[in-house]
Amino acid sequence: MKKIYNDVNQMVDEMIDGITTAHSAFLKRLPNTTVITRSDVRVQGKVGIVSGGGSGHEPAHAGYVGEGMLDAAVVGEVFTSPTPDQVLEALKAVDSGAGVLLILKNYTGDVMNFEMAKEMAEMEGIKVEQVVVNDDVAVQDSTFTTGRRGIAGTVFVHKIAGALAETGASLEEVKSIAEKTINNVRSMGVALSSCTVPAAGKPSFVLEDNEMEIGIGIHGEPGIKRVPIENADQITTTLLEKILADIDYSNSNVAVMINGLGSTPEMELYLVSRKVSQLLEEKEITIYRTWVGEYMTSLDMAGFSITVLKLDDQLKEMLNKPSKTIAFSN
């Protein structure tokens, strides 16, 4: 896969400049950092929300910075957690005294780097809470292992926590709604082709023409199993069944996200969405709202993930609140 870049070691830096220049109306880069914040950062009295991770998942996470969602996104190298000093800069920039919620995805690297930053920030007197998203049902949940990883469901956590924070809620309240969201969101993905990390220059794995990788993450790591490729309805059914088996969705209202991993055309994503609607209707689960598009990608990978979030009235209200960001506007 050919890539468009100048110097592979400068790609992330140039991307950050590109993002903050293109959207200077509401975003800015903290000088000499890899942190992107709202241009009106440090909103008085508001709990700050910071997320981030490796890059290569665009529009995540910078695409969710703005009114009603994140206050800052910390950008790491491709598929590499940002370092603690950068996260610390973000925490310092957004804290207005009301404290900061860190939203991270459950990867060892992210957890370690963000926790180090949290410790440093606390030493500087900033109140920091953190939540760890782990929505991927492809991975076995277990306390003896790293556990599940966080994937596209993270976007709902950003949206919901961000919306509540905007109302002036306390750090505890914001953390608690983020946790409620995490407890009620599940996802699973499939890849039809690998991604290529620019600096690696070769695909992370190779799939034959008739193969797909079920239970893929968002870092080009291998999935759970490799199987012969099936049709849209079959693949969708496989993923959705695994999701629905994980928590009890019966009689509930849900938000659905069909997330493209990078190079799967929207046309194909809508075939998946169509089947998800049919299957949920059969099971008498009511779709409250659906999002289809690229929300949490894996560079140029072909494939998609399905996310289903079980809603209550509070979550519904927050999902519908206004947000002004690059990739998630209400």
Partner: peptide
């Protein structure tokens, strides 16, 4: 290393 690596290996 802590400030320039990131990922899992950086903090470790």
């Amino acid at each position: 290393l802590t400030a320039k690596v990131g990922g899992a290996s950086g903090p470790l």
